[in-house]
Structures are given as C-alpha cells and as structure tokens.
C-alpha cells in the first residue's frame, strides 16, 4: 500500500472524486496551474483541465456563492478557501444559504457541496493565517464539519464528503499536512461522516482531540503510559455530527475526560462535548471534564503561537488533575 502525507492523501481524494463523478468541479484561488498554495490540488489542473479545476478571482463570497449556484444546477463543487482566516467574506453564503437551502426548499435544493479549508496554527504562518474557528460552523444547523488527522482518513473523508447529500466543511490541519506519512489504499473507499476513530485504548482517562491535536494527544498518551496512566484516545474526525456513542462509551469506561483543541476555550467545541458528557454520562464521572485549549485571545502572531496552543505539558497537567481530583 502506498504511503503518503496528509496533503497527498487529500489530493488523492480530490483526484478520485473528479475521476468518479463528472459533475465534480474544483474551484478556488490558486487551485489550478499553481496546484494550490499548499500543493493540495497539484497536478489536477493538468489532468482534468481548466473547466473542472478552476482558478477563480480572489473573492471568497463569490467562490462559495458560485458553488451553491452550481450545486443548485446539478454540479458537485469542491470549493477551496485558502486559509480559515479568510473564509469570513464567504461566511454569509455558508450560513444563510448553503446551510439552510435544503430546509428552505423542503429538500428541493440540498446544496450538496464541500468547502475545503486549511486551518489551525503551528506552521509559523503570517498573521491571521492560523484561525481555528470550527465551532462557528459546528454551531450552524444544516452543516456538517469534518477534520482528518491521518492520510487514510483524509482521502476517505474527502470521498465521503463529496458524496454526502449535505454541505460539508472539510477542515485541513495545516500543521500536519506533511508531518508524517501513512498508508493510503490506491482505491475508492469512504470514511463515513459522524464516526470517530479510536486511536488508542485505555482505562483511566478519555482524551478527545481532532486535527493537529491528535498526534499531540497521542504523544501525551505515550508519555502518560510510562507513568502508569492509560489513555483512551478518540480522534473525533467528525465535529458535526458527533459520534456520541464512541464518546459516551469511552467516558463511561474511564470516568474521566480531557478535551484538547487549539481553538479558544469559551464556547469552543470543548464546551459542547462537556455538556454532552454531562447529559449522558454524569453518574459515571469521577472528575469534572477538563479542557486544554487555546487561550481566549485573538490568535497571536507566530512568535507567541507555541504559548497559545495546547502542548504536552498542559495536557499532562490536565490529566493529572482529573486523575487526582
């Protein structure tokens, strides 16, 4: 089985989608000849041509608005927004239209489209390039939000997202675009939306993470294992809908949960997960659910980004806290 990076696996997912379904088109800034600023769409323009892999004007509302119109008229667009910090001009199109066209038309126009967005920090990117505002999208009824953290999932989730009947925000953790390689089957397969991945089995505490926080939490779990603490690590993969069964099942087993995300704490997805655990596993809890998150400050310029983002030390401290509660 070929081994590839996350970014290559996403490329594979897009390539398969374009090959399998003639109604799929890719559009965005620099996605064509340049192959994307991260090279995510590398080679696709050469293979599928200018009509299916489209360099657009620099206009996020235009890209997403056009994608919705294309979906209404029978295409399956994969729109790329270059960085999450730049998605906001297109936010209105997502919130007022993509998310609710199905409801507003009683199922007549479901707005089946994918918006791909590199997100998160950790790569010393210029100012305003490192946002992690996934909870803005998770909060909007009608949207689905997914984040792969392995090359295998990146391809499978992308294929599933493109075929999904609902609009999907597909977030790509830039930090791990090229951090490691993993096995990716050279065939068509789907990783279903709404299913978390059990990364590691453990008994003492549940760690919940997604995106670039997964390898960090994994590393923390390895260190904690040496100290005799075994972690049940869950990679959410799907931020909406949530895989409640896996989350609740794990917390009922361990009685403790630590949620790790790089978005700021207040009203981040960690708050929703905490409430979910509270509603469904309260009597199983041995300690309050604890969050390790970015601080409630604007994402800093990169000189301070390591201080802003969760790190091993903070995860270990949080685990200690819930174990010794």
């Amino acid at each position: 089985m070929p081994e590839m990076t996350l970014v290559q696996a996403i490329n594979e997912g897009i390539r398969f989608s374009l090959e399998l379904d003639p109604s799929v088109v890719v559009l965005g800034e620099d996605v064509g000849k340049n192959g994307g600023v991260f090279r995510t769409t590398e080679g696709l323009w050469d293979t599928f041509g200018d009509e299916r892999v489209i360099d657009t004007p620099l206009a996020e509302a235009g890209i997403i608005g056009a994608s919705i119109g294309m979906a209404v008229n029978g295409l399956r667009p994969i729109a790329e927004i270059q960085f999450m910090g730049f998605i906001y001009p297109g936010f209105e199109q997502i919130v007022t239209h993509a998310a609710r066209l199905r409801t507003r038309t009683q199922g007549q126009y479901p707005a089946s489209l994918v918006v791909r967005v590199p997100y998160g920090g950790g790569i010393r990117a210029p100012e305003l390039h490192s946002d992690s505002t996934e909870s803005l999208f998770v909060h909007i009824p009608g949207l689905k939000v997914v984040v792969p953290s392995t090359p295998y999932d990146a391809k499978g989730l992308l294929l599933a997202a493109v075929r999904d009947p609902d609009p999907v925000i597909y977030l790509e953790p830039m930090k791990i675009y090229r951090a490691f390689r993993g096995e990716v089957p050279d065939r068509e397969y789907e990783v279903p939306l709404g299913c978390a991945r059990q990364v590691r089995e453990g008994e003492d505490v549940t760690l919940i993470a997604w995106g670039a926080m997964v390898p960090l939490a994994e590393q923390a779990a390895r260190i904690l294992a040496k100290k005799g603490i075994s972690c049940d690590l869950i990679d959410l993969r799907s931020l909406y809908p949530l895989d409640e069964k896996t989350i609740i099942g794990s917390v009922k087993k361990t009685g403790r949960a630590v949620i790790v995300h790089e978005a700021p704490k207040t009203a981040g997805l960690g708050a929703e997960l905490t409430a979910l655990i509270d509603e469904h596993a309260f009597l199983w809890l041995e300690a309050p659910v604890t969050r390790v998150t970015g601080f409630d400050v604007p994402v800093p310029m990169f000189a301070l980004e390591d201080d802003f983002r969760p790190n091993l030390c903070r995860i270990e401290e949080a685990v200690d806290q819930v174990i010794n509660f």
Partner: peptide
C-alpha cells in the same frame, strides 16, 4: 432576503449550465 446574496448564486447556476 439578505441583500445581493442571490447574485453570486445565479452566476454559479449559469456557470453550471455553461459547463453542461
């Protein structure tokens, strides 16, 4: 209802018609 939001979508639908 939100002003002008239909305009890019009409453009996208026209684009799809052209491609098809």
């Amino acid at each position: 209802v939100p002003i002008a939001t239909q305009i890019p979508q009409a453009m996208g639908a026209a684009w799809a018609a052209k491609m098809k």
